[in-house]
Computed example of a mutant assay.
Amino acid sequence: MNDPLPPPPIDLIDGASLYLDFDGTLVEIAETPDAVVVEARVPALLSALSVRLDGRLALISGRAIDGLAALVQVPGLAISGSHGVETLWGDGRRDGPARSAGLDVAVDAVRAFAAARDGVLVEEKPFGVALHYRGDPAAADDAHALVMALAGDAGLDVQTGKMVVELRPAGVHKGHALRRLHAEAPFAGHRPLFVGDDDTDEAAFVAAAGLGGCGILVGPPRATAARYRLDDVTAVRRWLGDMR
């Protein structure tokens, strides 16, 4: 397909608040979440960007906040985790919902499913659970059917992504996360930019546009709410590095 989206200009960051996805955007997607490689240049880049933007930098990820904070190790960096369910603010505050009463039952069910299939991995989160089938793509239909069946009983929503399906609290997503962060200092009052690669990032592209900013898609051309596009993780790092 023809690509109608240009790369983002270097000066797009001027006066902006910048929100970044993690896997597939700042780092390459790995076979399992624990196998991701975070090169030393990534924390250094994030630290420099945070200074450049007077703290108006945050990560918005499907990962849980504690795990992501341990990977990047950038003090004072705001992180919204689990697709907007939980937030670690730059001043150390944390917030999140009550854990669903049905989540433990759902976790047991997906663990039993994964135990019977080589290559399927369970990622338990504080307020949800994800089923990764990158190691066994043939399990996709069964994995989605199971999670859909569990969602109602657990009182949770279904979130799909690249070779993953998960349960998360209802009514939250990355667009919700961006709007929540952007309502408070130091982000409020500045044009929001969101950079992400997955279908899960589309809600954040829409939210950024609704607040006067825009989205930047990472990866091959596809139907998207983003205004700009970068080819891959290397292109993202190059673009961000040019702005420091």
Score class of each variant (00 low, 15 high):
V72M: 12
S61M: 11
G196S: 09
S61T: 14
L211F: 09
A226T: 13
A112L: 09
A203M: 06
V165F: 13
A203I: 00
P8A: 07
A109I: 01
A58E: 10
M163Y: 06
G189N: 04
D91S: 09
L26F: 06
A143I: 12
A145Y: 09
R134G: 01
P75N: 09
A109D: 05
L193P: 11
V120D: 00
I65G: 00
R93S: 13
F113W: 01
K174V: 06
H132L: 01
A140C: 14
G81Q: 12
E124F: 13
A106H: 08
D142E: 15
G175F: 06
E124G: 00
P169Y: 06
L5Y: 03
A106P: 03
F194W: 11
R52M: 04
V36L: 07
R244N: 09
V37F: 06
G212D: 02
A70D: 15
D3N: 14
V110E: 12
S61L: 11
A114Y: 07
V110T: 01
R99N: 02
R111A: 08
L167M: 12
F127V: 10
D199K: 12
L103D: 01
A204E: 07
G92T: 02
A106Y: 02
I13G: 08
R179W: 01
H132K: 15
G213M: 02
L211I: 00
K162C: 11
A154K: 15
K174P: 11
D21V: 01
M148K: 10
P33W: 09
S17R: 00
L156Q: 15
D198R: 07
V172Q: 13
L131K: 02
P221R: 09
A209Y: 04
S82G: 10
A114Q: 14
M1H: 10
A209V: 01
T224F: 13
L59F: 12
P126T: 02
L146M: 06
E124C: 01
S50P: 00
L71Q: 15
R94H: 15
T87M: 08
G24P: 11
I10M: 04
D242Y: 05
G119Y: 15
P169I: 02
A40P: 10
F22N: 04
D108G: 06
L59P: 09
D231I: 00
S100M: 08
A40T: 12
